[in-house]
Write a protein that binds this DNA or RNA. Sequence first.
DNA 1: GCTTTCGAACATGAGCCATGTTCGTTACGG
DNA 2: CCGTAACGAACATGGCTCATGTTCGAAAGC
Lengths: 253, 253
Amino acid sequence: MSNADRHGLIAKAVRDSGGATVQELAELTGASEMTIRRDLDTLAAQGVLERVRGGARTLLLRGEEPPFALRAHEAVDAKRRIAAETSALIADGESILLDSGTTCLEIARLLRERPVTVMPLSLQAIHLLGETAGPATLVVPGGQPRAAEGALTGPLTLASLAALRFDTAVIGCCGLSAADGLTAYDLDDAMVKKASIASARRTVVASDGSKLGHTAYAYVGPATLLHTLVTDTTAPADEVTALESAGTIVKII
Amino acid sequence: MSNADRHGLIAKAVRDSGGATVQELAELTGASEMTIRRDLDTLAAQGVLERVRGGARTLLLRGEEPPFALRAHEAVDAKRRIAAETSALIADGESILLDSGTTCLEIARLLRERPVTVMPLSLQAIHLLGETAGPATLVVPGGQPRAAEGALTGPLTLASLAALRFDTAVIGCCGLSAADGLTAYDLDDAMVKKASIASARRTVVASDGSKLGHTAYAYVGPATLLHTLVTDTTAPADEVTALESAGTIVKII
DNA sequence: GCTTTCGAACATGAGCCATGTTCGTTACGG
DNA sequence: CCGTAACGAACATGGCTCATGTTCGAAAGC
């Protein structure tokens, strides 16, 4: 079992029952108590849980998004496939706006090898595109990063978006439905997504099926703004048909 | 001998004589030819030299700056000490503009642990400040990074600078003299430095002594714009006195 | 004050990275 | 067109780092 797997197990156990003791977690994972303690410290630093004497307590409220460090290791396969398909929708030479989130980070990994211009809206993607001298051209937007998420937001980000026009905006999402449109967990994020869509000729949403039919609390815009949705087979069929009849092209991988 | 040491030796040998064979370099460093080939590939990717059959040729013109990857390992000690002194000049709570370059990267490492707001002008420093959740607040400027240097330049950078005002601008330099003022190797860089100084109440230059009395080709501004210079004992005494009589406070570490 | 938990320090082992060696392939010179 | 030298892919090896476990003294809670 890898380090990340164990972290996932612990986070799930703590979230499901609201808390757990070090002993319980050691039994559950088969690791020693010392290792569990170290894991709990790590997860506490990531904001996944709260350390208490004897164990840990959950910090996550229902409906809230789990932290980036955890999501990055979940459903990697589906994300890779969605990323590959999204990348295939993009032609050489395009200028691309790339949203924050784990799926978009996978897309950044692929775009690095393509002759395109990319402006990523997360620190992780900036780092990925900046450290290797590939054929891709990197443009950095201004902004203030939101904690571990690394998503750039605020007036500097909006100003950078306002100053440029893109061929394609690749957007990740927290919630999408034909009825409630595109939604985000964070108001600042929602503003950035809104401005992103406005600055691009075409909007592609890359999202695994679990987000479809779900509605987060910050409204971005109606589903009719979206040209294409790339998702996987876990997407609910009724949402897919509703989105398609609203004019969005849906690619199911 | 560490990897970086050997790279430094190879780069120096190639630069000094304009070129070298794999055999020569293997003898010089005591490494195998295969290792030398791998090193040459790495250095070629960094833009330090050009690979030719049987060896390598220099790419650097006289007076040009060696690439970032090499400078980062040179005179680390002096840079650390200059960085520490520069950091000491900054009060908690200040908002700081941090220039690109290896010395400023060391300063970023120290500022990470301080309750300050930092806007770094290089990708490396953004990454450093963004990955660890320290007390420092990170603000990212927009811009286009210049290759391996990671220095942000262009209209987006200038716009970000124009939108903000800072307590202190910490500037690295390529050349500084009382007569010719502050100079940079790159015109875009020079424009950013100029705008940086204009956006800050106070300008601190952090530079090892080798840059003093030296003049690069892109003019930034007169030495009278600088409030404080932090340098080391290798700084030429006559330049130091000339700068001091022009009104700059000089700290020699 | 007693018990349990905690975490610092050290031991250990697995995995990774740098290096070297071998050998078939490729490029240049005659 | 052939011979020689260089090249680089593939594998072997060894050092180093990182994760894990163990021990034990300290600290926290009952």
